[in-house]
């Protein structure tokens, strides 16, 4: 028996070691490598690891383009996260009423999750065609036809706020996911609790306001963190809708252009590391919170 146990331990190690090693190298080793590049003077096709300290970071913060990126990321994140949470919660509450056809609607609201941001982007770029007058098309034409003229706008070509139009396409794609998270949360509210409140004479609205919604706070936290970290990484969707344009620039696109179009490897790595730091600020507390919760069980 104990010989079998020893043999099992050796087998176990042999089975997981390659994966642990791979994650160690390709995730953590490569992050360290990227950091090293971000402290280097590497510019051009050939690697150059001459140490320049924080130079790349300092240059970034005095670079107007990087400030456009930060502003765009804040705008995109606000619109996308708030929009997806409100819409997701609204849909989840609607679906929580046990109406016939619930499964159909749930599948419908979730289907955009199955397709690529590139597909969404290619389609939405035509829906959000900014042309007006005789060349009007897409949503603008639809608004024109149904008398909602005041909604006609220039979408992602709007100066300063264009990135918010991109966030609309992202909301279309991801709000079903938020709905699924909230629906899971709503279903875990015990029926007895609602029943008890009804007996006490509470209206359905009061039940939601004072009993159900407060119980959804952990779901909201998860949604905020997951959507927030997705929006920091946004890249494909913008590329597919608008290509690489300065007014719609974000850190992931700047990183891409600096590195692979311009061969400013040092600067590209610095953007990547700052992106990683921003994502870590959201994700690390979330991981700690999740692990503690699991330990409690």
């Amino acid at each position: 028996m104990s010989r079998l146990k020893n043999k099992d331990t050796i087998t176990s190690i042999a089975l997981v070691a390659p994966s642990i090693l791979a994650v160690g190298i390709f995730v953590y080793g490569f992050i360290a490598w990227s950091m090293r590049v971000s402290f280097s003077a590497w510019k051009g096709l050939l690697p150059d690891y001459t140490w320049v300290g924080l130079k790349n970071y300092i240059e970034l913060f005095s670079d107007p383009r990087f400030w456009i990126d930060i502003r765009n990321t804040i705008t995109f994140t606000s619109v996308f996260v708030i929009g997806s949470i409100l819409l997701g919660l609204f849909l989840a509450v609607l679906l929580d009423q046990n109406l016939p056809g619930e499964n159909f609607f749930r599948s419908l609201f979730l289907f955009p999750m199955a397709i690529s941001f590139i597909v969404t982007g290619v389609v939405w770029r035509w829906l959000m065609n900014p042309a007006t007058g005789t060349r009007i098309s897409g949503f603008n034409q639809l608004f024109d036809a149904i008398g909602l003229d005041f909604l006609i706008n220039t979408w992602h070509t709007t100066p300063r706020w264009g990135i918010a139009a991109i966030a609309l396409a992202a909301i279309w794609q991801m709000s079903g996911f938020t709905m699924a998270l909230y629906l899971g949360g709503l279903r875990s509210v015990p029926d007895e609790l609602r029943e008890a409140a009804r007996v006490d004479g509470a209206t359905e609205l009061q039940i939601y306001r004072h009993i159900v919604l407060p119980m959804l706070n952990p779901v909201t936290l998860s949604a905020l963190i997951i959507l927030g970290h997705i929006s920091l990484k946004v890249f494909d969707l913008i590329i597919a809708i608008a290509g690489k344009q300065l007014p719609l620039d974000v850190p992931a696109i700047y990183m891409w252009q600096a590195t692979f179009d311009g061969y400013f490897f040092g600067r590209g790595a610095a953007i990547a590391i700052l992106l990683l730091l921003a994502v870590s600020l959201l994700i690390i507390p979330y991981i700690i919170y999740n692990i503690r919760n699991e330990a409690d069980l």
């Binding site: 994650v23 390709f26 995730v27 953590y28 080793g29 490569f30 992050i31 490598w33 990227s34 590049v37 970290h229 920091l232 990484k233 850190p251 992931a252 990183m255 891409w256 590195t259 490897f265 590209g268 790595a269 953007i271 990547a272 590391i273 992106l275 990683l276 994502v279 870590s280 994700i283 690390i284 991981i287 700690i288 999740n290 692990i291």
Partner: peptide
Amino acid sequence: FPILLFGMFIPYQSILIPL
């Protein structure tokens, strides 16, 4: 587990150049 979880959420830009 936390080591694996973190690897799930990283922005892949941060490993792109080495990759």
